[in-house]
Write a protein that binds this DNA or RNA. Sequence first.
DNA 1: TTGTATGCGTTATCAC
DNA 2: GTGATAACGCATACAA
Lengths: 324, 324
Amino acid sequence: VRAAASRLGYRASAVARALRTQQSFAIGVLMADVSNSSFPDFVRGIEDVAQAEGYNLLLCNTDDVEEKQLQEMQTLIDRRVDGMVLLSQHTRSAAVRALLEVAPPYVLIQRRTASFNDDYVGSDTRSGIAALVAHLADLGHRRVAFIHGPVESSIAQDKFQSFTVGRRRYGFDSDPDLVHMGDYSEESGHAALGRFMSLARPPTAIIASNDVNALGVLAAAAKAGVRVPEDLSVAGFDDIALASHPRIDLTTVRQPKREMGRAAAQLLIKRMRAKRTTRGKEIIFPTALVTRGSTAPPRGQVGAAKLVRRTGGRSIRRRAAAQS
Amino acid sequence: VRAAASRLGYRASAVARALRTQQSFAIGVLMADVSNSSFPDFVRGIEDVAQAEGYNLLLCNTDDVEEKQLQEMQTLIDRRVDGMVLLSQHTRSAAVRALLEVAPPYVLIQRRTASFNDDYVGSDTRSGIAALVAHLADLGHRRVAFIHGPVESSIAQDKFQSFTVGRRRYGFDSDPDLVHMGDYSEESGHAALGRFMSLARPPTAIIASNDVNALGVLAAAAKAGVRVPEDLSVAGFDDIALASHPRIDLTTVRQPKREMGRAAAQLLIKRMRAKRTTRGKEIIFPTALVTRGSTAPPRGQVGAAKLVRRTGGRSIRRRAAAQS
DNA sequence: TTGTATGCGTTATCAC
DNA sequence: GTGATAACGCATACAA
C-alpha cells in the first residue's frame, strides 16, 4: 500500500520520532578542544559504539572554561540528548553539579568525583606513574622534576600523589622547585623546562603532565640545546600517536584511549537503558609503561646504566588492572 | 505570570521547536576519522562559528569508506540537519550525488567537484606544491619522488598535476618509479620510503601526500638509517601542529585549516539562510611554503647549497590567494 | 498585549 | 491485523 510511496524517497523524521518517543538517539560529548591531540582517540572510541548502537554524537568544545562548559551542557540538555560524556571536564563546582542534577544520564572520563555517585571511566594513573618513577629510579635518577597538570583535575592530583609516594620511596630530592604547576598544554611544557633548567641544580629527569605537555618539554629542550636523554630524561603520559614516532621516541605511560571511549559509551548506554537507578560504576583501565629513547641514565651515572638491560627494542611493562 | 514557573527549571525543548519550525540548528560533519591529525583543526574551525551562530555539530566518522559515508549521510538527512559539511569525502559517485540531491545545503572541504555546482572551501594546493617544487629545485634536487594521495581525491590529483608541471619545468627525472600511489596515512609513507630507497637510483627528495604521510616517511627513514635531510629531503603538506616541533622540523605547505573550517561553516550557514538558490561558491585559501630542517641540498651538491641563503630561523613564503 | 487553537511527523492507543 | 485518533512540546496565526 504505502510501500510504493515510501520507496520514492520517503524517510521518517528523526525529529518527530524524538519528540514522540522522548528519546533523541543523540549523545553529547563535551571536551576542551578536539584539536588537542589528547582527545580525538577518546571521541573515536565513543563514536565506535554510539554508531553501532544507532546513536549520533553532538560535539562541544569548552576550552576547559567552566562557563562554556555550563553553556554547552545546557544546550545539550535543551536538545534532549539521551546521554552525555564529560571528557575531562569540570565536575565538582556547584553550578556543574546543579546542572548534572537535571541532566540525562552521563559518564565521566578522566576526571573523577569520588564524592559523587557518577559513572566513570579512567585508567590506573597511579600505577602508571609508579611504574614510571620506578623506571627512572632504576636508571639512577634521584633528582626528578614533575609538571603538575591543571590543579582542579583529579587525575592530575592522582598523578602527583603517586609521584610523591614514589619520590619518598626512592629517596628523590623533594625541593619544591622541582614541581611546576602547569597544565596539559605544550606551552606549559615549554615554560616548565625553562624554569627547571635555570635552577641552581637542574633535575636529571622530568615527568610531564601528559604527552602533549612532554612534547613542549622536548621542543624547549631542543631549542635550548639540552640533549634528551643525554642531559635530561623526559617522560610523558598518554602514549599519543606521535610518542612512538622515532623522531620523538618518548617514554610514556600508555592508556587505551579508544578503548576507554568505547567503554564510556557502553557504560552510558547501559545507564540510559536502565529502568531503575543503580550505583555509579567505575571502570579503570590498566596502564602500561612504555620505555623509549627519551629516558636514560643520568650523566655521570654510567654505573647505573648497567643495572638496566635494554631488551631488543622498546619494552612495555604492563601493570595490573583494578576493575570495579 | 509564567516567569515563576519558568525560573524553576523549565527549558524549552529544542526537539519540539525543531519539529515545529523545521529547522534543527544542527550541522552534520562527515570526515574519515577524527583521530587522524589532519582533521580536528577543520572541525574546530567549523565549531567556532557553528557555536557562535547557535548551531551544534553532529560528528560522523566514515573511515573513507563510501558505504559508511552514505549511511551517515542518510542518518543526518533523517535527523533533518540544517546543513552538512563534507570534509574530504567522496563526492562524485552516483550514489553520493543522488543523496546530495535530496540533502539539505552542504559545503565541501578538500574535495572539489568541478563538474558540479557545489559550495567549496579549499586551499591553493597547486601554488603550494609549485612553491615546494621550486624550493627543492633551488636546493639542487633533480630526482624528486612523489607520493600520490588517494586516487579519487581531487586534491591529490591537483597536487600531482602541479608536481608534474614543476617537474618538467625544472627538468626533474620523471621515472614512473618515482611516483608512489598511496594515501594520506602514515603507513603509506612508510611503504613509499621502502620502495623509493630500494630503487637502483633512489630519489634525493620526497614530496609526501600530506604531513601525516610525511611522518611515516620520516619514521621509516629513521628506522632504515636514512638521514634526513643529509641523505634525503622530505616535505609534507598541511603544516599540522607536529610539523613545527623541533624534533620533526618538517618542511611543508601550510594551509589554514581552522580558518578553512570557519569559512566553510560561514558559507554553509549563508547558504542555509538564503531564500533563493544561487550558484555554488568557492573559497580558496592561500597556502604558504614553510621551510624547515627536513629539506636541504642533496648529497654531493655542496655548491648548490650556497644558492640558498637560510635566513635566521625558518622562512615562510606566502603565495597569492585565488579568491572567487 | 494576552489568550486559544492548530499543526509539525511521528508513535501509541484504541476500537474495529 | 487494519485504520482512525490522540499526544509529544513547541511556534504561529488568529481572535479577543
